[in-house]
């Protein structure tokens, strides 16, 4: 993993006074699947469209495969894109859809059809060549859209919220398929989603965005275990944000004192603790279970503590606790991250 496929340098996209994308820089390696994750309006779709060439940056440079493509239209770049609505051409059958790119890029129609057939076979769509998009199931439509996008061996394959039109039950399977396909063809892929679980499941790396800026870039584990800000901690998974202070290399708040892994100066600070990193021990303590919820795969407790309410997730195997029980909280040394420190 060395070659850079995509590189953004101080890329900005403005609409009037609104900065949809605000001077972001990052790079994506060849063969990597990177996800843009964030709430709606954070600039993730705009960033994807900047790669595609469907938007051009108002400042900064976009490089694809080493080439500066900042002012190049989509049709002059070599990218494949799978749209949220799939955007299959309704007046063309499957094979014409897939062969569309090679045909209009000037290739011979026959060769284009041949190439299209190969891709369809690879994606398990044989026999559907003559069908219209309206005669396909949702899953088939999506695979045709993918086939159409990769038929020209693009420098990068872009997915714009590809699961939003898929039944909730099928989502896991479809996202496995996408991941599998990306690995099989060793494609560089960029994936946009607002669903953090989806992002954690498919990505090599995740770019978390907020208000047009990059909040954090990292592998799923890094983002989950070591969020760099309140926003990231809160957006990815559930997080208990506890406000307190650092003193003598430990985070302290009433009823809690956690030694820091690395020494740090004194001052107010906030830590993030994942719900499953908190252990509850029944007995006399200052904390009290406010609600206990059985979720099938685990228990979820909301606990009143001297430093506020916290959410705790406990495996089903442990003895269940009841509303009103008093408990003691335990947080392992590596189970928390300082997300804010003055």
């Amino acid at each position: 993993m060395s070659e850079t496929a995509i590189e953004f340098t101080d890329v900005e996209k403005r609409y009037g006074d609104v900065r949809a994308v605000d001077a972001i820089s990052f790079s994506i390696r060849k063969g990597e699947l990177v996800t843009f994750l964030g709430p709606s309006g954070c600039g993730k779709t705009t960033s994807l469209r900047l790669i595609a060439g469907l938007e051009l940056p108002t400042a900064g440079t976009v490089r694809i495969a080493g080439e500066n493509v900042s002012t190049r239209a989509a049709s002059e770049r070599n990218v494949g894109m799978v749209f949220q609505s799939y955007a299959l051409f309704p007046h063309m059958n499957v094979i014409d859809n897939v062969a569309y790119g090679p045909t209009i890029r000037g290739g011979a129609k026959k060769a284009a059809i041949e190439r299209g057939r190969e891709i369809l076979t690879l994606l398990g769509l044989d026999g559907l060549e003559k069908r219209l998009p309206s005669e396909l199931s949702g899953g088939q439509q999506q695979r045709v859209a993918v086939a159409r996008a990769i038929v020209q061996q693009p420098d990068v394959l872009l997915f714009d919220e590809p699961l939003s039109n898929v039944d909730a039950k099928l989502r896991r399977r479809v996202r496995e398929e996408i991941r599998d396909l990306q690995r099989r063809f060793n494609l560089t892929a960029v994936y946009v989603t607002h669903d953090q679980e989806e992002a954690l499941a498919v990505s090599d790396r995740i770019v978390v965005m907020s208000q047009g800026k990059i909040a954090q870039i990292g592998t799923p584990q890094e983002l989950y275990d070591r969020p760099s800000s309140r926003f990231v901690a809160d957006f990815i998974g559930d997080a208990n944000l506890i406000e307190g202070a650092v003193s003598q290399n430990a985070f302290t708040v009433e009823g809690l004192s956690l030694p820091l892994p690395q020494p740090a100066p004194d001052g107010p600070a906030t830590i993030s603790v994942r719900p499953e990193r908190i252990a509850l021990e029944k007995g006399d303590g200052v904390s009290k279970i406010r609600t206990a919820t059985y979720l099938g795969s685990r228990y979820e407790y909301i606990v009143d503590t001297p430093f506020g309410t916290v959410l705790v997730s406990a495996p089903i195997s442990l003895a269940p606790l009841d509303r009103g029980d008093t408990v003691k909280l335990g947080i392992a040394p590596g189970g928390f991250t300082v997300v804010e420190h003055a």
Binding site: S75, Q84, F89, I104
Partner: peptide, 10 residues
């Protein structure tokens, strides 16, 4: 996005 698809296809 149908037109955008066409454009990304060249």
């Amino acid at each position: 996005s149908m037109e955008e698809a066409s454009q990304t296809l060249g």
